[in-house]
């Protein structure tokens, strides 16, 4: 059910002079890069560098202040639905409905993306099998562990057979076993199905291992681009972590507490009160 590809060459994502300001703050400042069809592209940067803002613009959740984007040949500003059909996304924060079962979460996604019923059911069974959740499909997702939720979200992101899979810090808070399992699976998907993967992570060794190409963003600007080896050569360093630090400096970044942190507290009170 993926949308028709209007192939314009080897690049599946092109970003040109992209800019996003929130009042005084420039979150993304004149960013340009491209992602090739079929590659695993890592987008790295310290906290508050503009990674998530960029992903939100690529995925139609935010409107750019200026600049242009093309994803799978479509413009997220003017051809939202075509772009939305082209990608699947696993958000930084979980986005499952935690009062629905695993099966119902997938079903809802399939209906939202108009995947025909028979095909939908077939893929749902398959994907649950692949992420190892078949025996838990009728359980409410609230009781799932972080790793299980992530796996289910990945299955959900793939249900409509997207061309690009966005993974925004997918391994945060996961144990090494689950992380390893997840990256193996993503790598396999990329090789077998040719799905382009766009990921962000704070774990340099993960990026080093899985990504074909890497872009480093800091203060809203791209400060380095290329393969892991190229970045190391550029900065004259031995590891990607050192290269990253050489590009972005050693200063620790202040990030404002997101309103979600406050909300979590409220939610606990609220739920405690209402249930």
């Amino acid at each position: 059910m993926a949308s028709q590809t209007t192939d314009t060459g080897t690049d599946i994502i092109t970003v040109d002079h992209l800019k996003k300001t929130f009042g005084e703050l420039t979150a993304v400042n004149d960013v340009s890069f491209s992602v090739r069809r079929g590659e695993i592209f890592a987008f790295l940067g310290p906290n508050g560098a503009g990674k998530t803002t960029t992903i939100k613009m690529l995925t139609t959740l935010l409107r750019p202040t200026s600049g242009s984007i093309r994803l799978n040949g479509h413009d997220p500003l003017h051809d939202q639905d075509a772009v939305r059909k082209s990608f699947g996304i696993v958000f930084q924060d979980p986005s499952l409905d935690d009062e629905l079962t695993a099966w119902e979460n997938l079903e809802l996604h399939g209906v939202l993306y108009s995947v025909p019923k028979a095909l939908r059911r077939e893929r749902m069974e398959q994907l649950l099998e692949i992420v190892g959740l078949s025996d838990r499909k009728n359980d409410i997702t609230r009781h799932f562990s972080g790793g299980m939720k992530r796996r289910l979200e990945i299955a959900r992101g793939l249900l409509h057979h997207p061309k690009v899979l966005f993974l925004d810090e997918p391994t945060i808070g996961l144990d090494p076993q689950t992380r390893n399992h997840l990256w193996n699976y993503v790598g396999e998907l990329n090789r077998k199905e040719g799905i382009t993967v766009f990921l962000t992570t704070h774990y340099m060794e993960e990026a080093d291992k899985v990504a074909t190409r890497i872009a480093v963003i800091d203060h809203g600007k791209i400060v380095g681009q290329g393969s892991s080896q190229e970045l190391k050569t550029q900065t004259n360093t031995q590891s990607l972590e050192d290269a990253f630090l050489a590009l972005t400096g050693n200063a620790i970044r202040e990030e404002e507490a997101s309103s979600a942190d406050g909300m979590r507290q409220m939610a606990q009170m609220w739920r405690g009160k209402r249930r």
């Binding site: 139609t60 959740l61 939202q80 075509a82 939305r84 986005s95 996604h109 939202l112 993306y113």
Partner: peptide, 8 residues
């Protein structure tokens, strides 16, 4: 977000 990125 899940509903907002859907082609709906």
């Amino acid at each position: 977000k899940e509903t907002l990125v859907a082609p709906v």
